[in-house]
Design a protein around this nucleic acid. Structure first.
Ligand SMILES: [Mn+2]
Ligand SMILES: [Mn+2]
Ligand SMILES: [Zn+2]
Ligand SMILES: [Zn+2]
Lengths: 153, 153
DNA sequence: CAGCATAAGACAACGGTTTTCATTTGCGGT
DNA sequence: ACCGCAAATGAAAACCGTTGTCTTATGCTG
């Protein structure tokens, strides 16, 4: 069986565009908002292609994925040194990578204790960032950044 | 303005049925499988009502909710002493409540460190339970319990 | 440059969940 | 016991993110 060298990642204009757009964001973004952002920049990429590319990037570990409260998938480029966990502001979408060493160890210990193999974990924090601090008994004065979710704008 | 006493939870046959069905399971169940289970028992409850009831139970903290890899919501009665986190076997659906004190403390500390308020958290473990231990280099001999997901049977 | 496997794109389909709206029903007041 | 009404139900349609299908376009390798 002649196993010839096959390229497994074809460089296309669309993939480059998705990757570029992804890195322009400092927060988690949905496939749809990424597609919208590209369109706004005059870059035509099919929504299907955006989904496919993000799925590939997630599978190959190049992006981290979380699901918002509505179940929509949000993507963010993964730092070079492995996966991270994030705290996301539910008001403005700000996301901070948090130090999770302690949780990683906890996961490993629990997995061992209960005899589970190949344990994967999901750890997400959602809250209100300092800027979006809740209006204490003053409904009128709204928070500064009034963006609901990093998803469908 | 006459503020009369309003009942906020009306006892109906359907709600009782959903609650009862929910407690019969020892694992997380989806709205749809719960609905199917009810139908199989000859109990007629609209799927819409099942969804609505579960949503209420979740909002009022009577059930814990997780989302499977497909995004489907799975429900489980919450123990009396507060919320729990679970390890779920991705092969047979077995779910174990795990001791999460350490994570709870970690969450509180992180929240304080980064200045987030009203922090909520999601912590889920998925893996293979002891019974579903991976077939080591033997694709033929399948695992014992061959149920994919506690959801749509 | 040719050949071909891979990718793109438009559109339909999918699946879980929510909305709508007409009808029923629990429940407090009498 | 009966009324009256707000709340709940249920069937069907709408919703929405995502994936499948299938035809066309295009990298890549020889
Ligand atoms: Mn981790
Ligand atoms: Mn917790
Ligand atoms: Zn914020
Ligand atoms: Zn198992």
């Amino acid at each position: 069986m002649h196993e010839r060298t096959r390229a497994e990642w074809r460089a296309t204009r669309q993939r480059a565009a998705v990757l570029r757009a992804l890195h322009l964001h400092d927060t988690f973004v949905s496939a749809q908002s990424l597609h919208a952002a590209l369109a706004a920049d005059g870059v035509t990429v099919g929504l299907t292609t955006v989904y496919r590319t993000l799925r590939l990037l997630a599978a190959s570990g190049h992006v981290d994925v979380v699901r918002d409260s509505a179940g929509e998938r949000l993507y963010r480029p993964r730092p070079d040194d492995g996966h991270r966990h994030y705290a996301v502001c539910r008001e403005c979408g700000l996301s901070l990578a948090v130090d999770s060493d302690e949780v990683e160890r906890w996961v490993a210990r629990i997995a061992r204790d209960i005899g589970f193999h190949a344990v994967d974990h999901t750890v997400e924090l959602t809250g209100l960032c300092e800027r979006c601090r809740p209006p204490m008994s003053r409904p009128a004065a709204g928070p500064p950044a009034r963006r609901r979710t990093p998803s469908a704008g």
